[in-house]
């Protein structure tokens, strides 16, 4: 599904990713771990299409097609979703209206009519229940005044609404207490199927107890220095990252 070939990327003159290769197939869960500053968030931003980062070399393919030249919204229409480490607050736009706008934008890109209001409401109810979300958050301004945990839950709610092919969860566990973590992980697991894939970016092993990866990759100084199965995460938890440097 996703093929990353020798990606080099950075911000202004600073190189951050120095030749990343990664292949993610449908139905798989990949975890990307690594110490702070190793390039984890840059990798997710580059896949999602954040123009702050410049890709100097390499390519990214989704279902065999290069997405490097596509804008973030075009990538989203093709099924890429990124859950932000720090979701942005947007005062004045309610969560419901935001999600409606996003869904209908995607439908429009696929030549479909707006989703009828009734179906939209049904979908919102269904997915918000999946995430055990308090209804009042839906009518409040997007993420404004939400706690860290509420923001993350809202991210996964949006993921559930948009039904992406490829989801990148960037440090979704940060700011979550254990109960919220379970709910969020449970939501992600329920959304998994043989046709979609998940990349979990995390500093700690904790989240991987709940979202069990098929593969674990360790990122260091902009390169994947080690790949393995889920047991690698446990090893990292026990030994830290130093032994890999």
């Amino acid at each position: 599904m996703l093929k990353i070939k020798n990606i080099h990327a950075g911000i202004e003159d600073k190189d951050i990713l120095r030749g990343i290769n990664l292949e993610v197939k449908a139905g798989e869960v990949h975890a990307i771990m690594g110490p702070n500053g190793s390039g984890k968030s840059t990798l997710s931003s580059v896949i999602a299409g954040n123009e702050t980062y410049e890709v100097s070399e390499g390519d990214i393919f989704l279902d065999g097609e290069s997405i490097l030249e596509l804008s973030p919204d075009e990538r989203a229409h093709k099924g890429v979703f990124m859950s932000f480490q720090y979701p942005v607050e947007i005062p004045g736009v309610s969560t419901t209206n935001f999600v409606k706008t996003a869904i209908n934008a995607k439908r429009k890109a696929h030549g479909l009519e707006d989703l009828p209001a009734k179906d939209m409401l049904k979908l919102i109810r269904e997915k918000s229940e999946l995430l055990e979300m308090d209804r009042k958050f839906l009518s409040r301004s997007l993420n404004e005044g939400f706690s860290g945990g509420e923001k993350k839950r809202n991210e996964i709610f949006q993921m559930a609404m948009l039904e992406p092919k490829l989801s990148i969860l960037d440090e979704t566990d940060s700011g979550l207490d254990i109960d919220a973590l379970k709910i969020v992980a449970n939501g992600v697991n329920k959304l998994r199927n043989k046709d979609n894939a998940v990349i979990v970016i995390t500093h700690y092993q904790r989240l991987l107890d709940y979202i069990v990866p098929d593969f674990v990759h360790v990122l260091h100084e902009g390169k994947i220095v080690k790949s393995g199965g889920k047991e690698l995460a446990l090893e990292l938890e026990a030994k830290g990252y130093d032994w890999l440097k």
Binding site: A48, G49, N50, E51, T52, S71, P72, D73, R75, A76, H77, V80, F81, M82, F84, P87, V88, I90, P91, G92, V93, F98, T101, A102, I103, A105, K106, A109, S141, Q158, L162
Partner: peptide, 29 residues
């Protein structure tokens, strides 16, 4: 806010609409 623009785009909202929505929200108060 560029980060808000990217956030909205990453959810599939095209840049022009994302901008308008942000401006809209700005004036909404």
């Amino acid at each position: 806010d560029e980060s808000a623009l990217f956030y909205m785009q990453s959810r599939g909202i095209p840049a022009k609409e994302a901008k308008a929505l942000l401006l809209y929200a700005f004036g909404n108060e």
